[in-house]
Write a protein that binds this DNA or RNA. Structure first.
Lengths: 300, 300
DNA sequence: TTTCAATTTGCAACCGGTTGCAAAAATGAA
DNA sequence: TTCATTTTTGCAACCGGTTGCAAATTGAAA
């Protein structure tokens, strides 16, 4: 159906190498030849087949984009920036939606079958072992929102979650709260662990302690449920919530109980997602340097 | 680096066709042979290269997923369902983020170079001509959230937006509102036009008229801004908003003005996105039959 | 005009598979 | 055991390109 390289060669009356070369930059072709070829190509509406090309060049310009965060609105922004950034560099994201059931092995194999040039794992709730599986398959991999870890060869880009915890603590102290608490995401997530650690240690330095609790996941419902439970018991003056979507859930819980923020209870979140501005909540603003994340993907 | 078909053939001491056949279902191979091959393949950690295969089979099992809605939270759900649905069928979504600058032609060509098996355009704000460009390139295309249109060969899946408008009108009438208005999305979007048309015609049947206004886009900010302007002038008793994110923006505007919903002003939205439940707003619930949308993508 | 280096071009093999066709092996009936 | 059938296997060509190498062309210097 669609014109192939050979068709163009035939039409232009030249060898197929010549055609191939005019479409490969850096190849040696005379201007005369190039013009002849381009004319024929244009007439036939030809454009080279990427996949066939990748067979010999071993580059597909496809990047596996893996995530399990299809419910956290902040990731819509992440996807937006990623796809944009990749596109601008002539790369294409092959999207993989990781559900709880899918095992790492099969996604690794899948992406290898498509011979992607690299993989971006974007999630803070996946175990480091996951990204490692890709490295073991000799694929360049970047783990965004991950934690700097000992596993070598896995590029990790993200914010310093420990420092985030510290910032939150300092902010609450400055505002004069004396009884503060941490409401984290899933206990197993590295981001939760680190934020908690920073929060607790900074409070400790000020001679304070923090009560700790965890939500089941980074979601509105989980935040709301956790907060409602906390309110029933013995609520603190202010909470540092693991992320914004959790914060908004907590906020909803507080409102349901007839209390107000920040008059009755203080809330401090994390992520600066678009939506946070919507509700006039006072959240710490930590903007992820996504540009740089994408830049790292070019580095590999 | 990675084992190839030939390596496996050599190791198993059989022809390469034999290997190929054991990995192609429906091919004729004896059990004995299959076992021999699988053993060798297993030892070498071999799995067939999809791209090479696609060269002869002409199927890549890749689907272009095109959208320009990377700011409307409801699309996170859409992406989730799409990627899931495609994956379950052994297909992979190649994501294309359409910005205002990217022209249709180039995305068409791009996806042709990757020889995707089909294309899904998921947006209600793109002109029908866009999907048509793919059809012209002889690619199967499904346009979700589009409008049933005259352009042939473009499968369109979506809700009946006219009927949505009617439903909204009936609901508001039932609740006793006598002075209602429509706050739509971008005037050029087919979804906006249809919803308005249904809304207006149903009201007309009841002897009522509706005031009309449009927001610049389906976004929180646009909804808020529009509502604030409307409030300054002569607000209606109740509004039918083009979609949920617009509704929430409008809601925020109303609250800023010190008014309450639904006591002072009624709001009815559309989409049933996850977030809508968060704020105890009363929104019409129209769940898009996404399962069927995905089913249609298999049909092509 | 000849000579020689620098460019440009074509040949042919290869990337990693699939598949039509004919030969070989297995099966079953006589 | 023999012969006709069916099933399994291998050969070789092909999918749509790329690329090392040698031959052909070009251009400038002698």
């Amino acid at each position: 159906m669609t014109a192939t390289l050979k068709d163009v060669a035939a039409r232009a009356g030249v060898s197929s190498s010549a055609v191939s070369r005019t479409f490969t930059d850096g190849a040696s072709v005379s201007d005369k030849m190039r013009r002849k070829v381009l004319k024929a190509a244009d007439e036939l509406g030809y454009s080279p087949n990427f996949l066939a090309r990748s067979l010999t060049t071993r580059r597909t310009k496809m990047i596996g984009l893996i995530s399990n965060n299809f419910h956290n609105p902040v990731f819509l922004t992440v996807f937006d920036l990623f796809t944009r950034g990749l596109q601008d560099r002539g790369l294409r994201p092959l999207l993989v939606n990781l559900t709880d059931e899918t095992d790492p092995e099969s996604s690794v194999q899948m992406l290898r079958q498509y011979s992607v040039d690299g993989v971006v794992v974007t999630s803070s709730t996946l175990p480091p072992a996951f990204s490692k599986a890709f490295r073991d398959a000799r694929m360049p991999v970047v783990n965004t929102f991950g934690r700097y870890s000992s596993s070598p060869d896995v590029h990790v880009i993200g914010i310093d979650n420990v420092e985030c915890g510290r910032m939150a603590a300092r902010t609450l102290i400055e505002r004069g709260y004396t009884d503060v608490a941490f409401l984290g995401g899933p206990e197993s997530a590295t981001s939760t662990q680190d934020r908690m650690q920073g929060f607790v240690s900074e409070l400790g330095a000020a001679g304070m302690t923090a009560r700790i609790s965890f939500a089941d996941e980074y979601s509105f419902e989980a935040g709301r449920k956790s907060m409602l439970q906390l309110l029933k018991a013995d609520p603190a003056q202010a909470y540092f919530c693991g992320d914004d979507v959790l914060s908004i859930g907590a906020l909803s819980g507080i409102q349901d109980a007839g209390l107000k923020v920040p008059e009755d209870i203080g809330i401090i979140g994390l992520n600066d997602m678009e939506m946070s501005g919507w509700e006039n909540i006072n959240l710490t603003t930590i903007r992820q340097p996504i540009r740089q994340i994408v830049q790292a993907s070019i580095e590999m």
